[in-house]
């Protein structure tokens, strides 16, 4: 076959190929429709409904009332502003601890653990996720109770004379949340660490950088993607967490999800609960926006 013929044949097959490909491309779009329908039916429509409900009159309207009364109550009352602050602070603290705990584990898994040990760590990380969160939280109750294992050990070692009030405290909540959420951080970081070309670190070492310097200048920046993904996941999940706070907090922490549940369950002030859930969603979006900007600025 001459070169000219080949060119002519190729030119002739391209439009035909496009014509064949086109229905599939459209079908590719069509495949998204069930997901879109699901998203519209179970996210957008309820969101619109909740938005509308938040403008109805609540059961404890502030003086003057008005369309924005529930939001006024939420954003102009120092108590509720404090609750919003506490919600954010808890999420930040849990995220930071998960990074501090999770990064070394992920690093060890990827760089030092052999096949069997690697698989064992993966199993240990995933196994708790298969247990209902409520069971894991009850586990912490048993450990941290006044007559629980921790207090008994401390007393048997003569480190304390009477049991410590470990449960129903912010410490118990943070412990419970880190336990539940750390696997998300570790798995996010590990997947990115595994993809880093180790020759880059070796090059840095050959050029005179110490172990610490090559980690700070090469490994850490290159793993920011995983760290960012993990941070967003953990932050968002901590932001909306509820069961752990209810079971381990004992009223020591007041967060928006707890108050939303309370408004729904005890007060039945659905408009105020709707305003709080919209505020929580908005705050989560704002935090997500800044986190993504921060990560991108780091060059990821």
């Amino acid at each position: 076959m001459s070169g000219q013929n080949a060119t002519r044949q190729t030119a002739g097959t391209v439009p035909r190929a496009r014509a064949v490909a086109r229905p599939w491309r459209l079908m590719g779009f069509s495949f998204m429709i069930p997901s879109l329908l699901l998203l519209v039916a179970f996210f957008i429509v309820p969101l619109v409904f909740v938005g509308e409900m938040s403008f109805r009159e609540g059961r404890l309207p502030p003086p003057g009332g008005g369309l924005w009364q529930n939001y006024e109550r939420l954003f102009f009352d120092s108590f509720y502003l404090g609750v919003i602050g506490e919600t954010m602070l808890l999420s930040v603290v849990v995220t930071l601890i998960c990074i501090l705990v999770g990064y070394p584990v992920a690093y060890f898994m990827v760089r030092h653990a052999g096949g069997k040990l690697y698989n064992l760590i993966i199993f240990l990380l995933i196994a708790p996720l298969l247990t209902p969160i409520i069971m894991r939280t009850f586990g912490w109750q048993v450990l941290l109770a006044r007559r629980g294992l921790v207090n008994e050990w401390l007393q048997s070692l003569d480190l304390i004379s009477k049991p410590l009030a470990l449960l129903n405290s912010p410490v118990a909540v943070v412990l419970g949340l880190v336990h539940v959420l750390a696997p998300f951080m570790i798995l996010s970081i590990a997947s990115v660490l595994a993809g880093i070309d180790r020759r880059l670190e070796e090059s840095a070492r050959m050029l005179g950088a110490g172990k610490g310097m090559s980690f700070l200048k090469i490994t850490l920046p290159l793993s920011m993607d995983g760290l960012g993904t993990g941070a967003i996941l953990v932050f968002m999940l901590a932001n909306g967490s509820f069961v752990t706070l209810l079971l381990l907090g004992g009223g020591s922490l007041q967060t928006l999800p707890l108050l939303i549940y309370q408004q729904f369950n005890t007060t039945r002030d659905l408009p105020f609960a709707a305003a709080m859930s919209n505020a929580l969603l908005l705050i989560a979006f704002i935090c997500l926006f800044f986190q993504l900007r921060l990560i991108r600025r780091k060059g990821v």
């Binding site: 109750q141 048993v142 109770a145 006044r146 007559r147 629980g148 209810l246 079971l247 004992g250 009223g251």
Partner: peptide, 21 residues
């Protein structure tokens, strides 16, 4: 007086008594 803890669900009360809280 650190003489009270609170339960958020009915089962939790039984856990409090059982665990010695």
């Amino acid at each position: 007086a650190n003489a009270v803890i609170f339960y958020g669900g009915a089962t939790e009360f039984l856990n409090h008594l059982e665990s010695g809280e």
